[in-house]
Write a protein that binds this DNA or RNA. Sequence first.
DNA 1: AAGGTAACCTGACTGC
DNA 2: TGCAGTCAGGTTACCT
Length: 278
Amino acid sequence: MPELPEVEVTARGLAPAVRGRVFASWRHSGQRLRHAVPRAALDRLVGEPVHDVSRRAKYLLFEFSAGWLAVHLGMSGSCRLMLPDEPRRLHDHLWLAFQGATQVVLNDPRRFGSVQWLPRRAADTVQALGGRLGVSASGLEPFDSCMTGVYLHQQARGRQVAVKQWLMEGTTVVGVGNIYACEALFLAGIHPGRAASRVSEQRFELLARTIVRVMTDAIAAGGSTLRDFSAADGTPGRYGQAHQVYGREGMPCLICATPIRRIVQQQRSTFYCHVCQR
DNA sequence: AAGGTAACCTGACTGC
DNA sequence: TGCAGTCAGGTTACCT
């Protein structure tokens, strides 16, 4: 599921209900997620207030005085606010209860999601947490003012990999997954198979702007829902209706009417227009 | 060092 | 109706 917009929508949905509340208790389904649930850290956090709920890359961050609880939604995860007496659903795996009867429940059918504890280090910032979360979270946030065509061009130097794959690595810019990589490359007119180093600075300038635009629009629409995703209040995202190429194989390009093509790169589907994207 | 592949999981859908 | 095969928003360990 979730790329940056979906995680952002989740964070914005949870924050008003959770910010400032005291963490009261937690429960785990016992089913293994990507990483073992940090039991000792969760136990220590009981009684501590949550200062904020935010996002870094595709990670949801619950900020405590001692550090951050980082939740990743994997391919199929979603986090929802629930009342204590609501029945348990299939694939609910983690319950975080807060004072005042607020409960955050992580549901994840495929269990590619994770929960990690990041102890606070001196002068830590949310931006700096990226590297500690993994290489895929180490790049710049798309909304960072340093995310320019010059920056992308410089980062892509010497990289022979396809630009789409390079974009999705998360080492240059974070949060761009399969859907939004396809969409942003289409809007920038860049062929997804082009070597990253062979994209011009001018094209990268356009790409930097289209990434921001696609992300902004997707957040405003509540994200994309393919099958699993829903926001903290359970509503699905509407951005799927705005997809220009993703999931539109064989359908006419919205610019030139040429049928959209689908290829496989790195075992992932890529959708593009071979006329508009060069 | 960079590039490719497999693995982690469940569920929905397609075609026979 | 049932079964096999394919595909799905991500990440990373391990090869070459």
